[in-house]
Computed example of a mutant assay.
Amino acid sequence: MSRGIYILANDRVIDNAIALLNSIRAYDADSPIVMIPYNNQYQAIADIITKSHGVKIYEDLQLLEKIDDLVKQTCGDNLLDRPNLLRKLACWFGPFDEFLYIDTDIVVFEKIIENLNYLANNDFICCDYQYTGGIKQVFTPKITEIFSEDELKDVFNSGFWGSKKNLITQQDLQDTFEFCASHPEYFYVLNSDQTILNYLVLKRMSRRFNIVRENGKGPGNWAGSPHFKQEGYKLVDPKVNQPLKFVHWAGVRLEPGGSYWDIWEHYRYLNEPKPAQVAFTQKKKSLWQQIKDKIKG
């Protein structure tokens, strides 16, 4: 049985991809990694990461184009935001029997592929607290006509998840796209991949597991959470007294002075000199300035 990691990237996210890959390789030198091209602009990143990190490029480019065409034919040009994100669905048809998918705005703090051990008793895994915010950013309230309240407690973030090859078919994709196009009233379209991936998994996979629910409650991982404590170049969640598996800048700006910037910066320049302009770190505002900003807001 083969195991591996997929990422989705192009030339616009070279720095993020390198930071992610550096973090993966810092704890795991050997696990195979495949990059799914987000679009046709990926030669620059491919030249770098195939040499520096042993990454391979997804071979079946025709399948990616087929997914693109299927999305366009069924959903049109205006229904979905960033439809190319749906290329990540190609994970189910790639070379790995068991796989993790990881967005490039993530860095990891452990041998992350070992989380695939949870697939021994499950067909789909995720690791986030998306469900605590309810269904917003995934579905509209009308989705309760399709899924029960218990089922909707399994909504997840589409940036980190794992599954098994061929559990989803190309016909499943077509049926899902057609349903979403015919019933836009159920879907929060600003996150097209998250919406469609959630619908696909909730509809077709009953053996789901969210890793943060293990032993009651696990650590968070969203970079928008201000309470994490830094230990070296890892983070700890003091609410559960556990180290984070990874940190995810979903919807959070990755910039000097931003949330956990020094963590990202460390992994981005782990194996090369850090440019002077990137070394800038914004000074923390005084308490009085924070109060004034809050009043202005």
Rank of each mutant, 00 (worst) to 15 (best):
K239H: 03
I112E: 02
L20F: 10
K164Y: 06
P141C: 12
F99H: 02
V240T: 08
Q282W: 05
Q137L: 13
S31I: 09
I196D: 01
G297I: 06
L20A: 10
V13P: 01
G162D: 08
N271M: 07
T169F: 01
A17C: 09
I36Q: 00
K239C: 03
G94A: 04
P83V: 10
A46Y: 00
T74K: 14
I168P: 04
A9L: 12
V108A: 08
K229T: 07
E145R: 15
D97A: 14
D81K: 14
I211N: 10
I67G: 09
F96E: 02
F246M: 12
F124N: 00
Y101H: 09
R87Y: 11
S259D: 10
F187K: 01
N198Q: 13
F179C: 15
T169Y: 01
I263M: 08
N198K: 11
Q194S: 15
E114M: 01
Y233Q: 06
E265I: 04
L254C: 10
W249G: 08
A181V: 13
H53R: 12
W161E: 01
I295F: 06
M35V: 14
Q242S: 10
K285P: 07
R12I: 03
R207W: 10
V107I: 05
S225L: 12
E114T: 02
I146R: 01
C91V: 15
C126F: 04
D30W: 05
K284R: 11
I112G: 02
C180D: 06
K234G: 14
N22W: 05
Q137G: 03
L173S: 04
S52L: 08
R253F: 04
K142F: 07
G76A: 13
N241L: 11
F93V: 15
L89C: 02
F209E: 06
E185Q: 15
N10P: 12
P243A: 09
D172W: 10
F147I: 02
I24L: 05
L254I: 15
N10Y: 02
K274A: 13
G162Y: 08
D28H: 03
N210W: 01
L86T: 09
V278A: 14
Y38A: 14
K239Q: 05
E255A: 14
R253I: 07
W288F: 15
I295Q: 03
E98F: 04
H53Y: 15
F139A: 11
L70A: 06
E110M: 12
I263Q: 05
Y186E: 14
Q43G: 06
M35D: 08
Y267Q: 00
L89M: 09
N122R: 10
S163K: 02
D237M: 08
E178R: 13
D128Y: 02
A9V: 13
Q242C: 11
T144V: 03
E151V: 11
K285E: 12
E59I: 03
A120I: 10
Q73H: 06
I125A: 06
F228C: 01
I113D: 07
S259F: 03
E145F: 12
I291H: 12
T281C: 14
Y58Q: 11
V107F: 02
N271W: 04
L89I: 05
